[in-house]
Amino acid sequence: MATDEALVVELATGNEPALCELLRRYERPLSNFIYRHTAGRDVEDIFQETWLRVVRQAKRFDRNKRFSTWLFQIAINLCRDWHRRAPEEASADPKESADASRPIDRAEARLDADALLARLPEPQREVVILRYYHDLSEDQVAELLDCPKGTVKSRLHNALARLLALTKEDKP
């Protein structure tokens, strides 16, 4: 079975089956990551833009790097751009914007994991998603976010402390 890195080389030549295989391997983790980063909004746009960039930049892919790291770095940058572009919308309650017509049980909505994640500052949210949902080690998260391991540790610590405070606030 071809490695991800070999498939990227194929992809640079416009090989469609290579893209199909990479999509098959990463569609779920990548869409989950984007979903949690943006609280389920504009997932399709960011997902497609990520792959478009992968295809366009495949020729410049550094073979010494892991493809998954590169892919998620592209997605993280796009998610960051998304948050910068629409800061007000991004901080809105995702449940309300996802389906405005649906009557929302406030207690349920306030205790929703996505809503909680959305209330974390972006650097902390990234660390929680990568560490908790994608099961990456602190070293891997540090490599992905291009920051020291200590920063990852402190962000995770602060994020969990903030989540703890938020759940206490929301406790009925």
Binding site: R24, N32, Y35, G40, L111, L116
Partner: peptide, 19 residues
């Protein structure tokens, strides 16, 4: 709470649209 997070994305359709 974190465990209860469910991702509601039709992955197959997403990949198909991307292709």
């Amino acid at each position: 709470l974190l465990q209860s997070s469910v991702v509601r994305v039709d992955v197959a359709a997403l990949s198909q649209h991307t292709m």
